[in-house]
Simulated scan of single mutants.
Amino acid sequence: MIGSSDPAAVPPGTRRTLAGAAEAAGLLGAGRRAGLVRRTEGSTQLELLLERVAPRPELVIVGVGDDARLLCSLARRLQWRVTVAYHATGKATRERFPAADELQIIPRFAFEQVDVRGKYVVVMSHNLDLDREAVHRMLTPEVKYVGLVGSSYRLKKILEPIRQPGEPERKIDPALRDKLYSPVGLDIGAETPEEIAMSILAEITAIKNGRSGGFLRDRKGAIRGGGTDASLNASTSSPSFLDEPAFPESCRV
Rank of each mutant, 00 (worst) to 15 (best):
S4C: 10
D6W: 00
L18C: 05
L18H: 02
A19V: 12
G20Q: 07
A21I: 13
E23I: 14
A25V: 06
R32C: 12
R32V: 15
G35E: 08
G35P: 12
L36S: 09
V37M: 06
V37W: 06
T40N: 08
T44Q: 08
Q45H: 14
Q45P: 01
Q45A: 15
L48I: 14
A54P: 00
L59Y: 07
L59H: 08
V60L: 04
V62I: 15
V62L: 14
V62S: 03
V64F: 04
D66P: 00
D66W: 07
L71R: 08
L74D: 11
R76G: 11
Q79E: 14
Q79R: 10
T83G: 04
V84M: 05
A85V: 11
Y86V: 01
A88I: 01
A88E: 15
T89P: 04
K91R: 15
P98F: 13
A100M: 09
L103T: 09
Q104A: 12
R108F: 12
A110V: 10
R117P: 00
K119C: 08
V121L: 06
D129N: 10
R132A: 15
R137T: 07
P141Q: 01
Y145H: 12
G147Q: 09
G147K: 10
S151Q: 09
S151R: 03
S152P: 03
S152V: 13
S152T: 13
L155H: 05
L155W: 02
K156E: 15
K157D: 12
L159R: 14
L159P: 07
I162R: 13
I162G: 01
G166H: 09
E169S: 09
R170A: 13
K171R: 15
L180T: 11
P183N: 05
G185A: 07
L186G: 05
D187E: 14
E191Y: 01
T192N: 05
I196A: 05
S199D: 07
A202T: 06
G213L: 05
G213T: 08
G213D: 06
K220A: 13
I223M: 01
G226Q: 10
S231L: 13
A234M: 07
S235H: 03
S238K: 00
P239L: 10
S240I: 14
P245K: 03
P245D: 04
P248T: 06
P248V: 08
E249R: 13
C251G: 00
